[in-house]
Design a protein around this nucleic acid. Sequence first.
DNA 1: TTGAAAGCGTTACCAG
DNA 2: CTGGTAACGCTTTCAA
Lengths: 384, 384
Amino acid sequence: MYATRLKRGVTSTRSLDIIRWVAIIFGSVTGSGTGHKSMSASNSAITIADIARAAGVSVSTVSRILNNKPDVAEGTRQRVQAIIAELGFTPHAQAQRLAAGRSRAIGLLFPDAQLSLMREEFILGAAKAASDASYTFYLITSDLTRHQLMALCRSALTDGIILMEIHLRDWRVSYLKRLGFPFVMIGRCANNNGISFIDMDFEHGIAQAVDHLANLGHRKIALLASPDDVYERGYGPAVRSRDSYARTCTRLGLPAIIAPANDTQAELAEATNMLLDRHPDLTAIVSMHGDTTIAVYRALEARNLRVPADVSVIAFITRRAAELFTPPLAAIDFPAYDFGYQAGRMLIARLQGSGSVEHILPPPQLILRRSIAPPRTLRPNGLA
Amino acid sequence: MYATRLKRGVTSTRSLDIIRWVAIIFGSVTGSGTGHKSMSASNSAITIADIARAAGVSVSTVSRILNNKPDVAEGTRQRVQAIIAELGFTPHAQAQRLAAGRSRAIGLLFPDAQLSLMREEFILGAAKAASDASYTFYLITSDLTRHQLMALCRSALTDGIILMEIHLRDWRVSYLKRLGFPFVMIGRCANNNGISFIDMDFEHGIAQAVDHLANLGHRKIALLASPDDVYERGYGPAVRSRDSYARTCTRLGLPAIIAPANDTQAELAEATNMLLDRHPDLTAIVSMHGDTTIAVYRALEARNLRVPADVSVIAFITRRAAELFTPPLAAIDFPAYDFGYQAGRMLIARLQGSGSVEHILPPPQLILRRSIAPPRTLRPNGLA
DNA sequence: TTGAAAGCGTTACCAG
DNA sequence: CTGGTAACGCTTTCAA
């Protein structure tokens, strides 16, 4: 029935790792002609004028009805709506947007870095906030240049945007602020006057985690941090967490042991090994990384060290991912979906004129799971 | 410096599980006035006409230059472009779209069900395909009613859409086909004439998994399937996998043991327990579920059964998630990112007139990880 | 309560 | 190669 051709060539693509198979089947296109091509999105489709004509009213009236304006006679409204329903009319959003000068759309500027299991939650949360408010939702990947950001604002594609991966001094923030283009941040700058944000409180989160471990009796607690260049570039989470860690260690009279690493399993494994080589008496690790922290588990396992018997581990991670670990990974909970949702909600509130500047910094929540325990030396008379 | 107010009220929201904290900080808005409100996306912004005037040419000419049309004198082009750069002009996408009748946008209709770690990959893959082709990308969540789908098509917001969660007979497919609105599917119907799709080959994937387990010596292999109502509703993956499982068991002379369950940890735990109660001699489980399969691990653990020593487990899951399991979860690999990317690419090819109908059904790839082994009885003289 | 008409910022056709 | 000008489909004054 089908003539099947199998191209198994290595049709590789830029950043895509594999396209190892492409089977094109030339279907015997029966029935409805050769594929779809009739109305590609703007045919002789029915317009507001058609409705007006059919109803014997003016386009203005139809427009008013479409937009639920009050000044329309009830009878007219009913009649026109009947016709709209009958003809299956639906307005052309593109035109509405141009005429109205608003897009009823928000966009999420999503960092184009590698995948991470928690990021889906940001996206879906923000998308939900948009759809709850009848806004459309753009996902904009890739890190924008200044010019692209300008183009995005000018394009009027969105009424406002959500920014992520915020640096303490962020050119995008200054730019948008100067332009007066509405935005909110997931993350925050050094100075956030007049800008709404929701951010993880890395500072207190780290302090809380280290305090907890210290209370359990740990004395050698390492931080698996972001790479040095990220820290030096002033990336918020990197700076706040590392600084907070250093201060907390000082306060508790503990040594500060920092291992920078990129968010990949390979680098984390390497960093873990380095830590264990240099500090054989290490009993706890706090990881700034998410699901890649599995590499820490694996590195420990390879050395016959057990979690948490020999080393306790804690990370910043979503519930969903934390529970895939064995033992389940204790965490400073990262409610990414909520962050996305809140950001979307704040932005839309802003756009609708309700809503003042909001700074949301939820108290970090430590979720104790089985990856932490008192250190081995104390275990006989365990404190937990 | 700040007056901080903490609302800790239970400001619960519809589907959102927690908004337990809202800290509004009334910043002493120094510097740039009270927030941003100056140019909300459509100020007295500079237009193509301004450029034309400044350059002493007509708008048509500027438009041609903007769209890289060939029929423009090189000198003019240079001059105008200089002015465009100087004035920082960027076209108004909304207007371009209306005038051109194309949106250069695609949308992904994303099922509004619960989160799943693999779904991010679909989204980001599709978004990447869009951005690679300079298209914008809409993420449309929520399951659309017929009317909403109609509105989406008519709105001209997108030139085409990607459909997911396809049923063997899918009203959306018939509708879009009849309308002639461009779309591609991740998944496939019973009849796919004239429609491009990329789909997981659940049929062969299941057969491959069961065959592999049988070859290892397993004789009691259960399928953790989709719920019955999903099967009966004709949801593609549910039907194809369950039917294939049944056929494969028949072919191999093995009993077919099917445990339907929704894709939640609770239901999977329950289903696993039921399986073990009824079939104490069970030695392998094939799961149609993704990261929720962790519940199977936990249920086994609770009964002191070990993976893979006592029970082998295999699932449909992405690499990233599979490797968080301990032991790492063997899988029929689900390259969701690639699926998203391919779907986006196909759709755009379609929109640009290149590209014929493509049916992509990659050969399923079994990734052997440490969650499978020969059954206990055979282990002494193991076959693997 | 309704209608006419002027945009919204582009593109595209058609003359020149 | 360039410039007018009519769309694109809707919203929004402003009069009636």
